[in-house]
């Protein structure tokens, strides 16, 4: 039997008349880069928000590590090892790169009313910060206020913040959005590097990157998964070609 880290079963969510998730089911295997693609309005972001706990589904279940997490608040899911980056960059602009990562590292480690010790000298931070900086290739930028980073670097920082909690499953919501070709290459390199230590659920528009990176792909149309499979299977699936790839060219 395959080891699934995440199983989404019969998920339903409607906003008034709009069905954002329509009896949606799919599973993510441990260790995979699993890509989620679909035309605009297919319900990708709603799905990600349901998995990470920002939107409550109307019905259905989400199993993470065999536990149903549907009723769990977002910060408990994060504590279980479900990390995510955000589509719109939501880093702390006026804090330095190191401070941003420190906030994320400390977020789930006990109480936060520590007034005395310099935050960068807390043992946990000293242990984790250098490797986190290195993993997202920002070690040379550690003391720069985040607002001075390039767009691509901000995205890297955001991934770094999601990594800081040592997630088992990392959800990356359009990490390549708004990047030039150089940034896309950098981000692909980063994802390949991360793949060795965790499972990644990748939501992305850049088809070249998706087909190059993903082990498996789920295609979402109108809130339903119309296809699941390896990149090769997806490429040749007639339903996908007509519903989705055809439109994108």
């Amino acid at each position: 039997m395959t080891d699934h880290i995440l199983e989404v079963r019969n998920l339903r969510k409607s906003f008034g008349a709009l069905l954002a998730s329509n009896n949606l089911s799919f599973s993510v295997r441990r260790g995979d880069v699993h890509a989620l693609i679909g035309p605009n309005g297919a319900g990708k972001t709603t799905l990600v928000n349901q998995i990470s706990g920002f939107i409550r589904p109307d019905s259905g279940s989400i199993l993470f590590e065999k536990t149903d997490i549907v009723a769990m608040p977002a910060h408990r899911r994060a504590a279980m090892g479900l990390g995510r980056s955000f589509q719109i960059t939501s880093i702390f602009d006026h804090l330095t790169v190191a401070e941003n990562l420190t906030l994320a590292i400390l977020a789930h480690s006990g109480h936060t009313f520590r007034f005395w010790r310099h935050c960068l000298r807390i043992p946990l931070v000293q242990q984790t910060l250098p490797s986190t900086l290195e993993r997202v290739d920002l070690d040379h930028r550690a003391n720069l206020p985040a607002r001075h980073l390039s767009h691509g670097e901000k995205k890297q920082l955001e991934v770094g913040m999601a990594l800081a909690g040592n997630p088992k499953l990392l959800i990356l919501d359009e990490p390549m959005a708004g990047m030039g070709p150089g940034g896309t290459v950098e981000m692909s390199k980063l994802i390949r590097k991360l793949k060795t230590t965790m499972t990644i659920l990748l939501v992305e528009h850049d088809m070249a990157a998706v087909f190059a990176l993903a082990d498996r792909i789920t295609v979402l149309v109108y809130g339903t998964a119309i296809a699941n499979g390896t990149p090769d299977e997806i490429r040749t699936d007639p339903e996908v070609r007509s519903a989705y790839l055809g439109e994108e060219g």
Binding site: H94, L95, L103, T112, R114, F115, C119
Partner: peptide, 14 residues
């Protein structure tokens, strides 16, 4: 510069 201060500064903009 403590952890508390970091959270206060972080919360100020976001």
């Amino acid at each position: 510069h403590s952890r508390f201060g970091l959270i206060i500064r972080g919360a100020s903009h976001n």
